[in-house]
Amino acid sequence: MPARARVDRIKVLYNAAKSLPYPWLLRDYPKTVLHNGVGRFVCQLQRLTFTFCKSTEPSFGVRQFIEHDLLDFARENPVVVVYVQPVRHKLPMLVGEYLNGRTASTLVKNMDRDEVARHVNYLRTRSGQRIVQFERDEATNNPSVQGMWHPMLHQDTAMNSAALPDATFSKHHSSKQSATERVLQMLEEARVTNVQLVDDGSPI
């Protein structure tokens, strides 16, 4: 065997990456907004662009949505600017732009009117943050209440100034009492209570 074991690190990383359920997703921990429940709702979606074709089949559902539901949607969400952009012979897309500068888009090819409405509602209610996979379901700013362990944690501070080795620190401590210590303790108790110790033959 060599003096130091050789470890193949690339294989470890490769195997770890294979076991990730969604390797294309970013991985992160949940973060809380600290003003939880204080403040007012601000719709993060600022612009919504419908890109569709006026004649082809895949855009049929989007055309139905624009014809029947879009006016109601715009009336209910006055902060959202809606653009409707016909493009010839292209697939239909929904592109939302958010307050944090990010965009989110959805391909709504071959979808009917209800499905398009669901995707519009999804883009409306998103925050604009990237979707990440959580490493863990919980996160904390204070991982340990008792603090980090270190080697000096429960060490006797008298050792700091003593010259080691010192016999006082190496003394064994035990809860068990030896017979000699028991006899000396009985003698001390008798001296305190002023009792005469007499051998009456009974066991100690």
Binding site: P165, S170, H172
Partner: peptide
């Protein structure tokens, strides 16, 4: 024996408790 060279002794920071009373 109890003769320990000082280059060893200068590193020591802790005295372990013995396992039994002498």
């Amino acid at each position: 024996d109890d003769e320990i060279p000082p280059r060893i002794l200068q590193n020591v920071s802790n005295q372990m408790e013995q396992v039994q009373s002498v």
